[in-house]
């Protein structure tokens, strides 16, 4: 353990903790935009600058490891003035269209602008403009709102291992884009959307469906596969308009394309809600009891007439291990055949 002093408080933190993490552990707030607790430190936004006794210039707390006896100051007129300048600079190259932005009310940049009371900006000038809209089906990339914090680049590389996007160009023209600036063509897990602190990355399906303040959050489990990731459904009225996941869950807040974007079936008019049995070439609704009896009867008929090897069972990756185990047990033990397989083999 290391003992250090932050804003006059003596704290004790494990070896290897950064100054930022040490402060947050004890609820001392240091503003950040590019930092994400699950990603390697970046040190780009410069908001988390702190003063450390003995170091002549402010340093980024997200990249500085806490050291024994360190004396840290997280707020001073000088630091706050630097932070304000940084925010003003970011806002001088931002559409500032919070009135129609998807992320209004759920945007770190907006929060900080509010906190620092930036109404008048000393800086103005050229803004980056991008005329082309990304044609991919899932992720809206409004790059004019991108503050180049690099979180999306890091999550794609460090968590997904995909590296579908990276920084391109230099200076003011720097931007984050897929190779050759083509449309995004990745697996669309949407982790980049999950970590974006502004409205630069959102789900295409989210558009104008409701702001964060109006949604009810319902925690549930993803039914797409046996992993069972925790989902938080964002519900407005009786409709799911967005899916996210909390960081303090088994899946640490990470989701795949299905869990994050595959929720359209919920309110689809074509969604099957009851079993259907085909009678005289037409599908007719039936109760679960009738349907199961019907299936059991037909399986029994086939087995009696043609023998158990006339039947084969194909199981699903959407089932849990336990369900799959029971299914093969049923095919082997009850039906009496080894003709059992699983969709994940194909």
């Amino acid at each position: 353990m290391i003992k250090l002093m932050i804003d006059g408080k003596t704290l004790s933190v494990p070896d290897g903790t950064t100054v930022l993490d040490a402060a947050r552990r004890f609820h001392i707030n240091i503003p950040t935009l590019c930092h994400h607790p699950k990603l390697t430190p970046f040190g780009g936004c410069r908001l988390c600058l702190v003063e450390i006794k003995g170091i002549p210039r402010p340093v980024t707390s997200c990249t500085t490891p806490a050291a024994e006896g360190m004396e840290v100051t997280t707020t001073s007129p000088n630091l706050e003035s630097l932070r304000k300048t940084v925010l003003e600079l970011i806002l001088s190259d931002h559409p500032n269209d919070c009135m129609i932005c998807e992320r209004a009310g759920d945007c770190t940049l907006q929060e900080l602008a509010y906190f620092y009371g930036i109404r008048k900006n000393r800086f103005s000038g050229e803004r980056r403009t991008y005329s082309k809209r990304d044609g991919n089906p899932f992720i809206e990339r409004d790059m004019e709102k991108c503050i180049l914090c690099g979180r999306c680049v890091k999550v794609c590389d460090e968590v997904e291992g995909v590296a579908a996007i990276d920084f391109a160009y230099r200076g003011f023209k720097s931007k984050i884009c897929p190779p050759y600036e083509k449309d995004l063509n990745c697996e669309f897990c949407g982790q980049c959307v999950a970590v974006c602190p502004t409205g630069a990355l959102t789900g295409k399906a989210w558009k104008q469906r409701g702001r964060q303040k109006d949604v009810r959050e319902v925690d549930t489990t993803c039914a797409y596969c046996g992993c069972g990731c925790s989902l938080t459904l964002h519900v407005q009225g009786n409709e799911v308009i967005r899916v996210t996941s909390r960081e303090d869950t088994l899946n640490e807040g990470w989701l795949c394309v299905k869990g994050r974007f595959g929720y359209n079936f919920i309110n689809s008019p074509e969604r099957l809600k009851k079993p259907l049995i085909r009678k005289d070439g037409k599908l007719e609704e039936a109760s679960w009891e009738t349907a199961l009896d019907y299936v059991a009867g037909r399986l029994k008929d086939v087995r009696d007439k043609y023998g158990p090897n006339a039947i084969a069972g194909l199981s699903s990756a959407r089932c849990t291990n336990e369900e799959n185990y029971l299914f093969q047990k049923f095919i082997r033990g009850v039906i009496g055949t080894n003709n059992v397989d699983h969709c994940a083999r194909y």
Binding site: I90, G125, R170, G171
Partner: peptide, 13 residues
Amino acid sequence: SCGKCVPCRIGTK
């Protein structure tokens, strides 16, 4: 400017 930090990327502009 490499574009990484705000003061250099936007400030120098």
